[in-house]
Structures are given as structure tokens and as C-alpha cells.
């Protein structure tokens, strides 16, 4: 597993977070603080590249939901998901959260959508 599970890149129109590995409760908190660092810098348009994500916990779902709520306030942004594996999509679907997040096949498409 890579040491760097969260790689943040500030792009012109949005912020890209490349995630890798397993996101249990404590790792989900790291994603949360990474996203909140961006929000505190008045950046609200996010793309999460989920290509290499193997597992997400309910804690990760909470981070998605809570951060999206903050990002979408005043129509200023949102969280787009890019290339989640089938089992990640299944988790989102079982939790009924699949419809809440725009999902794209590739990070390029997700970034391009901003």
C-alpha cells in the first residue's frame, strides 16, 4: 500500500484529491481535514479520484455527506467522484447515497465537468 493515501492538487477550476487504499474511520478523518483545509481557503469544488480506493467505511460516507453539505452551501461547489471501483459503488448504492454524488468514469471527465 502506498504511504501517500491522499494527494491534493489545486487545479484552476477545482481541487483534485487522489485517494488510494483503505479508508477506515481514522483515514476518513484525514480526508476530512484535507477537504476542510481547502474549504477554509474558500475552495469548494472538489473531485475525488477514487481509482485506487479499495474500501470505504461508514465514517468515510459521513465525511462525504458532511463536506458536500458545506461545499454546496450558497451553490458554491460540490464533490464529484471519479472512477470508483464496483464495490465502492455498491457501498454507496446500499447506503442510498449514490444519487447524491455526481460520478464520472475518469478523473479527467470529472475535472472537465467543472
Amino acid at each position: 500500500m502506498s504511504d501517500q493515501q491522499i494527494v491534493h492538487t489545486e487545479l484552476k477550476r477545482c481541487d483534485l484529491f487522489k485517494l488510494a487504499g483503505r479508508f477506515d474511520s481514522s483515514k476518513a478523518h484525514e480526508v476530512e481535514s484535507a477537504l476542510w483545509t481547502a474549504i477554509n481557503a474558500n475552495r469548494y469544488r472538489f473531485v475525488l479520484d477514487m481509482t485506487a480506493v479499495e474500501y470505504i467505511s461508514s465514517g468515510f460516507l459521513r465525511v462525504l455527506v458532511a463536506t458536500q453539505k458545506e461545499a454546496k452551501r450558497f451553490n458554491r461547489g460540490d464533490i464529484y467522484l471519479a472512477a470508483p471501483a464496483q464495490r465502492i459503488q455498491d457501498v454507496l448504492k446500499l447506503a442510498g447515497l449514490d444519487a447524491m454524488f455526481k460520478t464520472f468514469d475518469t478523473p479527467e471527465e470529472a475535472v472537465g465537468a467543472w
Partner: peptide, 14 residues
């Protein structure tokens, strides 16, 4: 579809 409680004003419940 069933959605979690506490976040949506009108969640789908299965």
C-alpha cells in the same frame, strides 16, 4: 433505495 437518517430532508426508505 434506502438512504441514511440525519442528513436528507426527505430520504428514500426501502
Amino acid at each position: 433505495r434506502g438512504q441514511p437518517l440525519g442528513v436528507l430532508t426527505d430520504p428514500d426508505v426501502d
